[in-house]
Design a protein around this nucleic acid. Structure first.
Length: 115
DNA sequence: CGATTGACGTACG
DNA sequence: TCGTACGCCAATC
């Protein structure tokens, strides 16, 4: 089987790994950064493989644009994702990231710092 | 091989 | 402001 070295998925994993600790981002932000803003769903689908690839991808730092832990069910247990976020000093309430706007990390901005 | 689904997001009413 | 509809593209049934 071919390696997904340059696949869209790998690019998602790469960006996801660049997410600083204590910060979160959205599927759309990653998709937009990759130039596929309309394919935000593909980012989520890519995350499905996140736990299937190496190195492991901090998918728990990736939430939807509302800051809601939509993918909590894919971590084996909803508490897992919440715990991981708490571990990053990220506060959550009812699957909703508190101060989401504050901890939000936009790759299209952080990785495109112009002079 | 065709239809449905999905860890999303934007547009429209 | 909130609810519904649609688009994207890959995987699954």
């Amino acid at each position: 089987m071919k390696n997904q070295h340059d696949s869209f998925f790998s690019q998602v994993y790469e960006v996801a790994r660049l997410i600083p600790r204590g910060r979160v981002t959205s599927y759309g932000a990653i998709a937009k950064y990759l130039g596929t803003a309309r394919s935000a769903r593909m980012v989520g689908w890519a995350m499905n493989n996140a736990g299937n690839i190496r190195p492991k991808v901090p998918a728990h730092r990736v939430v939807n644009r509302t800051g809601l832990l939509t993918g909590k069910h894919h971590f084996g247990s909803p508490e897992k994702m919440k715990e991981l976020l708490e571990r990053e000093n990220i506060k959550t309430k009812k699957d909703q990231v508190q101060q989401f706007k504050k901890v939000f990390w936009d790759p299209s901005v952080e990785l495109n710092i112009e002079d």
